[in-house]
Design a protein around this nucleic acid. Sequence first.
RNA 1: GGCGGAGUAGCUCAGCCGGCUAGAGCAGAGGAAUCAUAAUCCUUGUGUCGGGGGUUCGAGUCCCUCCUCCGCUACCA
Length: 526
Amino acid sequence: MSADKPFYITTAIPYANGAPHIGHAYERIVTDAIGRFKRLDGYDVLFVTGMDEHGQKMQRTAEREGLTPQQLADRTAAQFDAMGAVLSCPAGDVVRTTQKRHHLAARELWTRMAAAGDIYLSKYPGWYSVRDEAFFDESELIAGPGGTRLAPSGAPIEWVEEESYFFRLSAYQERLLKFYREQPDFITPPHYRNEILAFVERGLADLSISRSTFNWGIPVPGDERHVMYVWIDALANYITATGFPDPKAERARFWPAGAHVIGKDITRFHAVYWPAFLISAKLALPRQIVVHGFLFNKGEKMSKSVGNVIDPLALARHYGSDQLRYFLLREVPFGQDGSYSHELIVNRITADLANDLGNLAQRCLAMVAKNCGGKVPAAGELSAADHALIAQAIALPAKCRGLLKDYALHAILSEIWHVVGNANRYIAAEEPWAKRKSEPARMQTILYVTAEVVRIIAILVQPFVPLAADRLLGQLGVPGAERMLANAEVSQGLVPGAPLPPPVPVFPRYMGAAGGSNLGAEDRAD
RNA sequence: GGCGGAGUAGCUCAGCCGGCUAGAGCAGAGGAAUCAUAAUCCUUGUGUCGGGGGUUCGAGUCCCUCCUCCGCUACCA
């Protein structure tokens, strides 16, 4: 496998001061699905996620909960690990910013940027509240008595100038614009590219990249009074995973990354700051920043005060992890915001998974089990209808590969299910059950064709519903080595006469919680 | 305010550089079938393609304008 083309893909690194929510789950699933698809297509894929564990907010939250920042980080990291496991999104690595290797990488990145002359010491001015130990933006301030202004907490504020290191971002405007021109799909979907372009064209100011008001972070090389502010610390995480700065590291070949999958709220950091840092440090730039939208609960933004925050683990337990994955990947047009609700999920998984694909596989395999001695049936001469259906199926891999270039995961599933629908229509039209006695050879051919198409679809669907796809391929007797995308581009993959295990439905019909039409209170997150 | 998106059947959305009587899936209604997870298949929509104006032989598809919603407009992880 090491001879295959490397493809490095990451999720953003969640901030470790709270439990995962559905947005994290969505991002993890999307990234995993893309990674799995590339792997299916023969790439050597490194899928990395991580945790952002530094910063003042971590210190505060930990203090409030009577923990050390590290303990809080450990607890949250464990929660994210559990989520990854339940959602079938195993990461090749989880880089935590508190790890030694990451301190090493981030400090080296800083050092190189400094060597390039892009880092200087200056003052970071702002409204500071001693009581809150925090800076506030002008817009956050509230009116106090006598025309004074106060922090949001009501604490008094003062104008202070904190010493801070700055990155010469202003010097990178032209280089960034040139880069965006040369690599037009660097930011995708295109909608997000325009916003970044407009932002950079307006001009860039230097960036404050260190803090001295708290110490839970990576010490600045050569000046221990400062710790790195979030930008360099968090973004360097991506390169830490490749063994940076060791050029001989086993994973060095994975840099530059193929895709950083992120939420639309942090596009700027990844599309502007990160490339600028890398240019400064004379490192290669990632191939693409892949931006996804947000998820809303019945169209409403989820928030703890509204009480509609739902634990993704509860959703996975309730509907099934494949089901949740399928719903999110199929229902949300990639790059756009989406919404979820009990009704939407049940409709989707019932119609597409249980009724369309699940039932197609089951009706086909059950007939094979009963009428073909539990062996792959023999195909006679193929009719025009047989050829047409198979042709559609083996055309799917190329089609899907093309759509993946634009990360149109929903469109990929739509294409696959179009063929699923045609397969159901094919069976209905051919009526193999009516030919059991009159034309047994023809019946076998019909069942062979159907099973072939199911096989191809099962291969294609692996990145999206990995557990069910694995079971289905097992029921078709497809060996592990024959489950690549390339195996779905040719027909006659099933060997007539090969014995098959007794079929079991792969997508059980959603039966609902006993008496309940919605998630029970016990399934809600805090 | 500036820049940029979006407004198409009950719901979610396709409709690229303008061209046959505007589509898909889901939901609803009627029917067929019975291999299968009561799953499947067929039939079924009088949609002002946000409003108005314009260009054109012809516009959902281009131009102008108005209405509505949304995003960005730098240090929040």
